[in-house]
């Protein structure tokens, strides 16, 4: 009886399960399959692709561009998401609690604008901002500083800053909501006990919103791992591969070199990296939950 009842209860989630299988698991399985073939965009292998086993993965191990792309991806994720968006979002949220309405409104409008705009628009705006003849250099010039070819000299810095601008709003919203859950009494008690503001932050606020921090870190890490449009529009992965993160590397191999199989293999590795990050964050979340119980 119970099993039938359970079955009936679970029936309503069937559609979402089917959707997930079709639109999430489907492409992943497909990418896995393609990555084991020599599928190409042109030439004989486009029409008649062969199963080549793990050849694409072996090629990747010997490809000097691959570790470069992994490293740049790590720099991008850690720099723009984990340090940049996360910390900035947190401090803005804390600052907003004591800021005047006017400041709060203008700042959040600026931060939210980048979040609401389509990624391609943000990317072009950032491109124009960092361009050699762009806004940043015009400002520097008026301050008497020689212009710098940002996208050429410091492409990673440019895309990291652009992505911080683009994504901080998300962390800000998560932390604004989380901070609302910090009980007023605890804050007051800490103040009466003479806690300094940094003590208050590290010993009271952060431990209370720890779960939100973990969730936020997981979401923005996964989002940032797959950022393509921003990087491709600003630098195309260049110059000479100096900002080729994994998504750009996969695109280049699949669509510029026309080697779809190899591009798919890189995508599969990207999925694995995402899974590893998720498992770490989920572990952290779960151990925290256990303690509360």
């Amino acid at each position: 009886m119970i099993s039938t009842r359970n079955l009936k209860r679970r029936l309503p989630i069937l559609p979402s399960f089917l959707m997930l299988a079709l639109f999430m698991a489907g492409p992943i399985v497909w990418a896995l399959y393609i990555s084991l073939t020599n599928t190409s965009l042109t030439g004989t292998a486009a029409q008649d692709s062969q199963f080549i086993g793990l050849d694409n993965y072996l090629t990747m191990l010997g490809d000097p561009d691959f570790p470069n792309a992994v490293w740049l991806t790590v720099v991008f994720v850690v720099g723009s998401a984990i340090i940049g968006q996360n910390t900035l979002g947190l401090f803005l949220a804390i600052g907003f609690r004591s800021a005047s309405k006017a400041i709060k409104k203008t700042t959040s409008a600026l931060v939210m604008a980048a979040w609401m705009l389509p990624e391609i628009v943000v990317a072009f705006a950032a491109y124009v901002f960092f361009n050699t003849d762009g806004t940043l250099n015009q400002i520097l010039l008026s301050l008497g500083v020689d212009p710098i070819a940002w996208l050429f000299e410091a492409p990673m810095l440019a895309i990291v800053l652009a992505n911080i601008w683009r994504g901080t709003a998300f962390s800000l919203l998560v932390y604004m909501a989380a901070l609302d859950d910090v009980p007023e009494e605890i804050t007051e008690a800490a103040r009466i006990d003479g806690a300094s503001s940094s003590q208050h932050l590290f010993l009271v606020t952060l431990p209370i919103i720890k779960n939100s921090i973990n969730t936020n870190l997981m979401l923005i890490t996964l989002q940032t791992l797959s950022v393509f449009t921003l990087v491709y529009t600003m630098t195309r992965g260049g110059p000479s591969g100096k900002s080729t993160t994994l998504p750009v590397f996969a695109y280049d191999q699949a669509f510029r070199v026309a080697d779809i199989g190899y591009g798919a293999a890189i995508s599969v590795v990207m999925i694995l990296i995402g899974v590893i990050f998720s498992v770490i964050y989920l572990r952290l979340l779960r151990s925290e939950g256990d303690k509360n119980e």
Partner: peptide, 11 residues
């Protein structure tokens, strides 16, 4: 220059 490879691809 892409004619031959696209012929081989059957396009």
């Amino acid at each position: 220059f892409l004619v031959r490879s696209d012929v081989a691809a059957g396009y």
